[in-house]
Design a protein around this nucleic acid. Sequence first.
DNA 1: CCACCGATTGACAGCGCTGTCATTCAGTGA
DNA 2: TCACTGAATGACAGCGCTGTCAATCGGTGG
Lengths: 354, 354
Amino acid sequence: MIFPLSRAVETRSGDPLQMQKNLRKPTLSEVAALAGVSEITVSRALRGSSMVTADTIRKVQVAAESLGYLRNRLAGALAGGPSNQVGVILPSLSNIVFPDVLKGLEDRLEHAGFHPVLGISNYDPEKEEHLIRNLLSWRPAGLVIAATSMTATSRGLLAASGLPVVEIMDIDTPPIDMAVGMSHRAAGLDMARHLIGRGYRHLAYVGHDIGRDNRAMARLQGFRSGLQEAGLALEGQVVLTEPSSVALGRRGLAQLLQANPKQVDLVYFSNDDMAVGGVFHCMAEGISIPGQLAIAGFNGLDLGQSLPRRLTTTASHRSRIGEMAARVILERLNGQETVHLTDVGFTLIAGETA
Amino acid sequence: MIFPLSRAVETRSGDPLQMQKNLRKPTLSEVAALAGVSEITVSRALRGSSMVTADTIRKVQVAAESLGYLRNRLAGALAGGPSNQVGVILPSLSNIVFPDVLKGLEDRLEHAGFHPVLGISNYDPEKEEHLIRNLLSWRPAGLVIAATSMTATSRGLLAASGLPVVEIMDIDTPPIDMAVGMSHRAAGLDMARHLIGRGYRHLAYVGHDIGRDNRAMARLQGFRSGLQEAGLALEGQVVLTEPSSVALGRRGLAQLLQANPKQVDLVYFSNDDMAVGGVFHCMAEGISIPGQLAIAGFNGLDLGQSLPRRLTTTASHRSRIGEMAARVILERLNGQETVHLTDVGFTLIAGETA
DNA sequence: CCACCGATTGACAGCGCTGTCATTCAGTGA
DNA sequence: TCACTGAATGACAGCGCTGTCAATCGGTGG
């Protein structure tokens, strides 16, 4: 364990000078007075309304500039103007998956002048409900949620909000409003079929906290169905109740091989981080991949594709999910017809580890 | 390249029913009428004011519940109540570093009932300025920014805002208001000294887009100073103008070794992702680590510590930075005395790759 | 019995902006 | 010449809430 040191280098007291500045922010009416027009004209000019003369716009801009005027969106949104905030609830930020989604989402939102307001649920339905309530109380323009298993109240809140609501990541359950994602069940099934087609017959699974991550659970179910189709069953399984990580995957494989020596010829991991951990374990123990043991993951991370042998995995289109989520929200806000269910699909990567 | 497929499974038009619901959200006064008290009493009861009878609170809660009342923070904040939003500007989400920071930040903010409002600058000062203006216009309670090189206007906006502003990640330049981070220069210097102490004399560097990531730049400068102290200089250098990734590190090392065959005995990478790429390159090419070539990185990611041989690197305390940033903001908001500069330090990890 | 007190509750104004109507005014065709 | 038109601007009210001060009221000590 590594402990950080925190050191206070310099201190000061609660600066009254800055507080003062805070008190007197110029308002629309001050800009209006300076520009010699009415408040509403300033409002329109600054928002780029088409019914203000170029001349007036210039005057207003000069006045606003010279006063250091900064629009107050709080007042604007309250007065009936549009909000440009979008609530975003994610279960975690501990691996790159949700940041990827968030990146795609932020990118598209930003282009349209919107901002994500973030909440992390930690896979906790109670906290999720709490976050929904909180974010909704800011009257956002929409909500994006990578839900864990939502409470009835959560669903009710979202349905009653009347806002565009996008449930992201998986499309295996019918959405309240809209959904963007992929079928994790299908991804697991697809991988099972692929591996069986490659000749593997003694398959095992190493997973992370599956009780909370129901998408990993869905993949496992799909994988099992695939085995069943071929008259097979999992010959070993290690599920550790911790968040996924490379270290956990390494530990998990060690544990699996200790319990099931020899007979296993392939291990399906709950995701790429875990799988890379498995690869590292093999490297450290001199187990040849895929000769002695084959390995497959899920996500298609850069990491796995940069291994000495490219990881066999399923690419999920994460930033695409974020982008599409932003897109359907923006479409809805524009009054356009929107898609209820968007399947961004997945792509099997036949790498060199299985 | 892998292309996603997007498929519209179901469509519908811009639901007028939901719009309706949206129109009639119950307000304070409706709750007040139902509970038989005044608006302000409802307001106080719902906010947990101490000067409302337990009895009244119960009445109000029942009324609010039965109407499905949802507080409007927009109105509250406009009327002078506190905002619980904190603007957060980060340069990127493409590796785990900033998500780690964000995680620590969100966690602490959430405990205090605050939400981060996010903006990604993409290391672009113009966009950063734009984001500052936008986020400020929502009158947040504070702002956290992992700045790239800020424009004068950006600095002016922040200074004039009168808000608690925390510049995070590095403390190498004096902050506008508060800073939380570490000295990247010192980290580079520290690593150079460590490696020289271990006997390495022919050192090279492989880095990513250093023109934009000025923290990586600071580490390199520190590293160079360390070499200079010992009468040494970099014997090779590859800097690729792309965002860092495992794949890029792998490519970068290949390029370096092609240009400088043999003589180099250690490569310092701009971060762990890059360094792991370097390790993978060596594995693939049969170069022994650290015998033929030693490798060092920066960040102390789980990934590097799970390699067959633990990566030699410097652990940055990322989630700690987020936590401390939240902390100083909350302290300031509580009117407490705050620390101007918080150094969370770093920890050299003497791994097995150098 | 009365001025006084602390604990509750309420009336009121206004936060800063925008939607919804007027209003103004130069130009237009009959 | 005159009603009429469209473009530009403005007056007004109010979004939903909270800070500030005032009012109420049962209890208290002198």
